[in-house]
């Protein structure tokens, strides 16, 4: 998974409109749907090539910019799942269909799916970390025959925090197994109580498996530790890291993980690149 950042070829509108490297393009929101109490799914119609796991810088002039990962995989649109947690995202979540958002990107390098053909995929996500993984799952649904077995493990806080639940059935129909946990007390018939690590205990270790991990920092640390203890190699694990990103082009220094820039070298890293 060594490739220099694919930014230049992937810049928004690169197909039909020349775009300066750091230019913000305003796009109207095509569709908004509420996912949880404070999380919304935004859809933008545009033809744009991107890998799952890449991200956009969403800006509202006068308020600021926020890095949001792409959670879809389509040639006709892209979707961003935004949770209202800060200045920019609070305001974003109050917008309506047709309102304009400033976007630049997509940045970083994500999951290059062609490299994973014929592999058995294990997708592990926690909370909002499920969003970038949904891009992989959308890709898998489309090109299911090119991949081996697919196992999905998600963890959420409570019943009302489950993301993309409407997609679960669609994925299961495509021969992907799915299990998820809720850490709070709940009455959900399909969910188990606990953390995502609880349902990973029976995960079989094989050499052909690749693990795709994304979630809150503590969840990534604990899950990776558990997987390594089980016998997976570091080179089998891909993590999508979250960092504060300001410039998104490897200059501002905020997102540095040791010597790597999360925005240009990542946000998707193979585990042995970092630790």
């Amino acid at each position: 998974m060594k490739k220099k950042c694919s930014q230049t070829k992937n810049f928004i509108f690169s197909k039909n409109k020349k775009m300066a490297e750091d230019e913000i393009v305003f796009l109207p929101i095509d569709k908004i749907s509420q996912q949880t109490e404070d999380q919304f799914l935004f859809r933008f119609k545009t033809t744009i090539s991107h890998d799952p796991g890449q991200f956009f810088q969403c800006s509202l002039l006068g308020i600021g910019e926020s890095a949001i990962s792409i959670c879809s995989h389509s040639e006709n649109f892209f979707e961003l799942s935004i949770r209202s947690v800060g200045n920019v995202t609070n305001k974003l979540c109050n917008l309506k269909k047709g309102d304009q958002i400033g976007l630049r990107g997509p940045y970083g390098h994500g999951y290059e799916m062609e490299q994973f053909h014929n592999k058995d995929m294990v997708i592990i996500g926690g909370g909002s970390g499920v969003a970038p993984l949904r891009g992989i799952l959308e890709h898998l649904s489309k090109y299911r025959e090119k991949f081996g077995t697919v196992e999905i493990f998600f963890g959420f806080r409570g019943e009302k925090d489950i993301l993309f639940e409407s997609d679960f059935e669609k994925w299961q129909k495509k021969d992907m197994s799915l299990a998820f946990t809720l850490s709070e007390e709940h009455k959900h018939p399909k969910a188990k109580k606990g953390f995502v690590t609880n349902i990973l205990e029976n995960l079989k270790v094989t050499k052909n498996k690749l693990i795709f991990l994304c979630g809150p920092p503590i969840m990534i640390t604990n899950t990776a530790k558990m997987l390594l203890e089980k016998g997976f190699m570091k080179s089998q694990i891909y993590v999508s890291e979250e960092r504060q990103m300001k410039c998104a082009v490897g200059r501002c220094g905020h997102c540095m993980i040791k010597g790597k820039y999360c925005c240009t070298d990542g946000p998707v890293f193979r585990y042995d690149e970092l630790y």
Binding site: L61, I63, G64, E65, K246, R251, C252, G253
Partner: peptide, 13 residues
């Protein structure tokens, strides 16, 4: 030269 990016606007934005 690590930097921050910040917006400034009038009260109405």
């Amino acid at each position: 030269l690590c930097f921050d990016i910040e917006d400034e606007s009038n009260l109405k934005g």
